[in-house]
Amino acid sequence: MTPATVDTPGQDIGTDASQSLTSAVMLDGTDLFCERDDRILFEQLNFTVSEGQVLQIKGSNGSGKTTLLHILCGLNDSYQGSIRWYGQAIETQAEEFYGALLYIGHRVGVNKVLTPLENLRWTCSLQQQVSDTELYRALAEVGLRGFEESQCFTLSAGQQQRASLARLLISDARLWVLDEPFTTLDAGGLSLLEGLLRSHADAGGAVIVTTHHDLRVADLQQMTLG
């Protein structure tokens, strides 16, 4: 198995927390290379994410953070190298992988004319069955009580972000991939999300997140692109 950190020229990767030896490796990438419009975004990039771990990806604008997340999720396949889910190629077990993956992108996937409730119902139903009580409870927990039935264009950006984050409460996905989830959140939102990440990791889940926010979680790895 490739170690989590490899010193490569041009890539500054370091770990802040020791990696738990007992937990299984969930997702690992070996020798990733991606080039966009004749510019190399990253090369010889290696990483592993184990159960209970949070991988924080940092990097300046345009350093390829979103591209890397897209590659990890299979939204982008113009890369070289291999990405494996529990040690096996993703293509051979696509349904298991996509059943266990929760991705919230830079664009959070909240339709403006639908209400938070309707949005949540649809995105959840792409993976698992949910009841309306669960949906209401999750929306209340992310601070959208009373806004469940208002159309999303009437909500602030932070509220829309919260609407998308409500999925984290419902989903049983083991791997969360979050692209800049903190950007529009207020102080309350920040601690809420951080709490969610912490409890997800504690429960044996893994998180890959791009942010410059200082995360306080037990098992944190950091990786800087560019």
Binding site: C73, F97, Y98, H106, R107, V108, G109, V110, N111, L126
Partner: peptide, 16 residues
């Protein structure tokens, strides 16, 4: 609209 608000990514990442 789905492309602009990111719903399309959710659609593509569905296990179905």
């Amino acid at each position: 609209a789905d492309y602009e608000d990111g719903s399309l990514e959710q659609l593509l990442l569905s296990p179905h």
